[in-house]
């Protein structure tokens, strides 16, 4: 059963006008490589729950399984851009402190070092053996432009 929360619905729709165009045809789900392997992840259902402002929308761990392959965006006949809807919902979860710890840590690594991989001396030794320049942290600038307060 879906419990509808109107305030949540309003909040979600504020940034996701496109959801209203969804007519539940399931093209996104039929195209989704994750659903093919794991039926618990279903973009069509995530979209309808978000549209209703269903309570369990925000508790769902399913969002984070999306591979960001963009296939659903490409095929959706209504221009809903399901991938982008999921992105915005994830952004909302992050802003409410509900994102998984790995995502928060991965983001922190990029802002502090400039890279999405940790820079280790082993990496730099390998690079050196191929006559490539060593990697150095260049996060300082990012802090200045990302963190505004």
């Amino acid at each position: 059963m879906i419990t509808i929360k109107t305030d949540l619905r309003r909040k979600i729709l504020e940034h996701n006008e496109d959801i209203k165009k969804c007519y539940q045809c399931s093209t996104c789900s039929a195209s989704c490589p994750v659903l093919r392997y794991d039926p618990d992840f279903n973009p069509r259902i995530l979209i309808i729950k978000a549209l209703y402002g269903s309570e369990d929308t925000l508790e769902s761990k399913e969002f984070w399984k999306c591979l960001s392959c963009d296939r659903c965006n490409e095929r959706c006949p209504q221009g809903v851009n399901p991938y982008n809807v999921l992105l915005k919902l994830k952004n909302f979860l992050f802003s409410q402190n509900l994102a998984p710890k790995e995502r928060i840590d991965a983001r922190e690594l990029i802002i502090t070092t400039g890279f999405s991989y940790p820079i280790s001396s082993a990496v730099n030794r390998k690079r050196e053996s191929m006559e490539l320049e060593a990697l150095e942290s260049i996060g300082e600038e990012l802090k200045k432009i990302v963190e505004t307060e």
């Binding site: 984070w64 960001s68 992105l87 915005k88 994830k90 952004n91 992050f94 802003s95 994102a99 995502r103 928060i104 991965a106 983001r107 990029i110 400039g114 890279f115 999405s116 320049e133 260049i138 996060g139 600038e141 990012l142 432009i145 990302v146």
Partner: peptide, 27 residues
């Protein structure tokens, strides 16, 4: 030519905050 690029940034970063994603890409 090599420039002082950072992470592009990737889709995982975008999933946390699209605005910052755009700022880093713009740099």
């Amino acid at each position: 030519k090599e420039l002082a690029f950072t992470c592009c940034p990737n889709a995982d970063f975008r999933s946390t905050d699209e605005y910052s994603w755009l700022v880093v890409a713009a740099r």
